[in-house]
Each structure stands twice: as C-alpha cells, then as structure tokens.
Design a binder for these strands. Structure first.
Length: 339
DNA sequence: AAATTTAACAACCGCTTACGA
DNA sequence: ATCGTAAGCGGTTGTTAAATT
C-alpha cells in the first residue's frame, strides 16, 4: 500500500540536504553526468531516492542556476507569461534562463499575496485576475487585461512602450488548449506559448513576406526590432487534429513565415475547400499597404477556427477565423485581439 | 514572535516498457 | 501477434515544514 517503489534503499534519508550530501551528488553528477536518476543514489553513495536527488540537482545544485532577486524584466515576463499560461511554472521557467519552476512558483505565490493585499487597499478598481478554481490554470481574459492595465499604469510607462520593450521577445501562441473547456465557454482561453526569443536574433528573412515587392521589403528590413506574435486558435472537437509538424518540431531559432504556417495548417486533412491562394494574395496586399502607411514592421495574430461536419461530412474543415495586423503595441504582450 | 521565503516532499500526469492473458 | 494494463520513470505542480528575516 503505502510503499515507495522508487526507493529500494534500506534507509532512505529525507528532509534537508547536508553539505556532505550535496558534495557527493555534485561530484557524481559532474563526473558522470546524469542519465538514470534511479541509479544515482546507489552509485553516488547517497541514502536518498532518485527523485530527491534529481530535484536537489535541478533546483539547487546545477551550476547554471541563477540566484538572487528577480530583475524587473524577469518579473514582467513572469507576470505576462502567467497571464498567458497560468500556473504552468515549468513552462514559464523555460523562458527565464537559469530560473527554476519552483523558484518562480514560490515567487509568484509570495508576490501575488502581496499584490492582493495592496490592490485591495490602493487600487480598488483594478482587481487581480480571477481564477477559476475548477480550472485553476485558466484565467479570465478580462482579468488579464485588467492586470495588464494595472501594470502599465503602475509603472508609468508611456503608451508607446510594451511590457517587453527592453527585450523585444517574440511569441507564438497556440490556443488549442481550448478543447479543455466547453464549446460555449469563450471567455476562458489558455493559449500556449510555443516559443519565444529576442527579436534581435530574428533574421531579416523573417520579415521577408513581400516577395513580390523588393522595395517594400527593403523598408521592412531597416525598421527596428519589436515584439511580434503569431497565434493559432483551434477549437475543440479536434481530437484528431494535430499541430502542424512545423510547429511541433520547431525550430528554436526560426520564426515560421506566415505563408508556411498557413500551408502547414491547410495541408492537414480536410482543408480542401479553402481558397488559400486568394486569401494569401489578399493578405499580401493588406500587408504591403499597411507597411507603407505605418512605416514599421507589423505584428501578426492569426486565429483559426475549426468547423466540423459542415461540408466535408465528418471531415474536419479548417477555416481561417480572423487575422489581425497591427502595431506591436496593439498586439503585445497579450493577444487580446483574440477576444 | 510573527510573517515571509525557501526547499523539500506528496501527488499527480503522461509516456514508455514489460508483462500477461 | 495483439491488445490491455501494470510498473517504472521523468517531469510538473500543490502543499507545507523548516529556515530565515
């Protein structure tokens, strides 16, 4: 019954790690690397279960860990990401090099307490996000916007700035987790950030969308970096639907060009009745026009709706639901235009 | 002394593999 | 061989004891 199968040691030590134990673990891992945690305790001479060793290494002993207080940038990133993905700490941590999920979780939990206390007294009309306790990871959109506004006001940033103005991250969202909610529940959406990185590292090819117009292309290239977003929405009943391979395999350092994204989606089964080419052309023209008038790089949000059983029998039909193009400021950090 | 923060475990989850009917 | 399922494992998140301030 209450038997720990992971611990086949005679006496399994628990609780805080002693410096001696730390040293043993460090010595073992640094010389042998880590592969199978369950055999670490034995080989390293530790009276611990493998899981405990793993946690100790991951959260505390590994050399590339970042300590000390969170920078304001990190804090903003955490807040924004939490707004997007909720309590998925590991996911959030993956965007903060050297920080552990545990640390971020702890930070959030102590931070949110503080903010709740503060906001109840000093900012009565700007509430913290309302969390659905049946689905704790899901957060109401309007709350996010409130939170967003709250920080924008709080930190006195100009309207030109975004929460990400310092690092210019690039986001790609996947809102396919929608299927976790009911079909009618439109106000709880939890997009997943698929990847993000500094737009500084973007190649000019990323914005090479105007194949037909080299003049425009040149303009685009010379404009400064800024945050960008691409979002996908796939709506429930998509049990057979898989994310396009391009996204899943992705491809840490390259942004998926929009045309590829589209064809990617369309190449999946059932996309047959889309006039993709015409849409593409239409977008291209919109884009050219927009760039010309705005004189800056656009950001994009695409969302896709999956409509079932309409025409193709049981076949799933993917329909481009909406696409929105705007200034970085109007789109980032959170794709509220998906509302 | 109380409140906050940290570091650990418990519980759970999804994936893979081993096993067995 | 094949399917179902149990076991094992790495990984993630909720919770809380202990340390710290």
């Amino acid at each position: 019954m209450g038997h720990h199968s992971c611990c086949n040691q005679q006496k399994v030590k628990r609780g805080l790690w002693s410096p001696e134990e730390d040293e043993k673990l460090i010595r073992y891992i640094t010389t042998h690397g880590y592969g199978c945690w369950s055999e670490v305790p034995e080989k390293a001479g530790l009276q611990r279960c493998g899981k405990s060793c793993r946690l100790r290494w991951i959260n505390y002993l590994r050399p590339d860990i970042r300590r000390g207080r969170f920078t304001p940038e990190e804090e903003k990133l955490i807040i924004s990401l939490h707004g997007v993905v909720g309590n998925r700490w590991a996911h959030i941590a993956s965007h903060l090099p050297g920080r552990t999920d545990n640390e971020i979780k702890n930070y959030w939990n102590s931070w949110i307490k503080k903010k709740i206390r503060k906001s109840s007294s000093s900012a009565p009309n700007l509430s913290t996000p309302t969390i659905d306790h049946h689905h704790p990871q899901l957060i109401n959109y309007s709350s996010i916007n409130q939170l967003d506004n709250y920080f924008t006001n709080q930190e006195n940033v100009t309207t030109k700035e975004t929460l990400f103005s310092s690092t210019c991250p690039l986001f790609m969202f996947d809102t396919s987790s929608l299927h976790e909610t009911t079909a009618t529940d439109t106000n709880v959406i939890r997009p997943e950030v698929l990847f993000h990185h500094d737009s500084v590292s973007l190649s000019s090819d990323t914005w090479n969308l105007n194949h037909h117009d080299h003049h425009q292309h040149h303009q685009v290239q010379t404009l400064p970096p800024h945050p960008a977003a691409i979002a996908f929405t796939t709506i429930h009943d998509t049990s057979n639907y898989n994310l396009p391979p391009l996204i899943e395999n992705n491809v840490e350092n390259s942004m998926v060009p929009i045309d590829q994204v589209q064809s990617c989606n369309m190449d999946e089964e059932g996309g047959e009745l889309l006039t993709l080419e015409s849409l593409q052309l239409q977008r291209q023209e919109e884009l050219n026009e927009w760039v010309e008038t705005q004189q800056q790089c656009p950001s994009f949000i695409f969302s896709w709706e999956s409509v079932e059983g309409q025409i193709g029998g049981e076949e799933q039909v993917l329909v481009p639901n909406s696409s929105h193009m705007g200034t970085p400021n109007s789109l980032s950090p959170f794709p509220s235009s998906l509302l």
